[in-house]
């Protein structure tokens, strides 16, 4: 991504906005997919709407991806909650070893986690964000990220080993 593309889009060049959309969409799809699951396409759409509406506020074009990631994670959690396809965020409801053994891919495990826990997994395991940064982005205490991650990872580990 060239900062020039962001600046042109901020100035109102819709061809630049179109190109920026092309560039951001695969990245947002990787962020929103694991968090919003079946609602992933809606989450990507809503994330892009929020990103483009607020694009004039982005002061540092180089920060585009981190800024877009934060918006996408929050939108994906919101859309997943709205569509109610996930179980409530009860940690006791995490997958049993028997369930996990039947899991054929990551999706099976993700479906058993609430969206907030999926968001932690995406930020820490996919994006490699430090705990503090993930907590800031999700607007929760660092300890919450830690406990969510511990539980989510435990279910993943069982799935991988199963």
């Amino acid at each position: 991504m060239t900062p020039g593309l962001v600046l042109a889009a901020q100035r109102g060049d819709t061809m630049a906005m179109n190109d920026l959309l092309t560039e951001l969409t695969p990245y947002l799809g990787r962020i929103c997919g694991p968090i919003a699951l079946d609602s992933g396409p809606d989450a990507v759409q809503e994330a892009l709407i929020a990103i483009f509406r607020h694009l004039p506020d982005l002061r540092e074009p180089e920060a585009l991806h981190g800024w877009a990631r934060a918006i996408a994670v929050r939108e994906a959690v919101r859309i997943a909650r709205r569509d109610g396809r996930s179980s409530p965020a009860e940690l006791d409801g995490l997958p049993s070893p028997q369930d996990v053994e039947r899991a054929v891919d990551i999706r099976d495990v993700l479906e058993r986690l609430p969206p907030e826990h999926r968001a932690v997994l995406v930020l820490r395991d996919l994006e490699g964000l430090p705990e503090e940064a993930a907590a800031r982005l999700l607007r929760v205490p660092s300890g919450t990220v830690k406990s969510r991650l511990h539980r989510a990872r435990a279910s993943f580990r069982r799935a991988w080993q199963g």
Binding site: L21, R30, C32, P41, Q45, L48, I49, L55, I106, L126
Partner: peptide
């Protein structure tokens, strides 16, 4: 095992781009 990826179809793409155009 691979992580799920969300696709954006062209109509959703158009809605997103148009939303940025008053």
């Amino acid at each position: 095992m691979s992580w799920p990826v969300a696709d954006l179809d062209p109509v959703r793409r158009l809605r997103a781009l148009a939303a940025a155009i008053p």
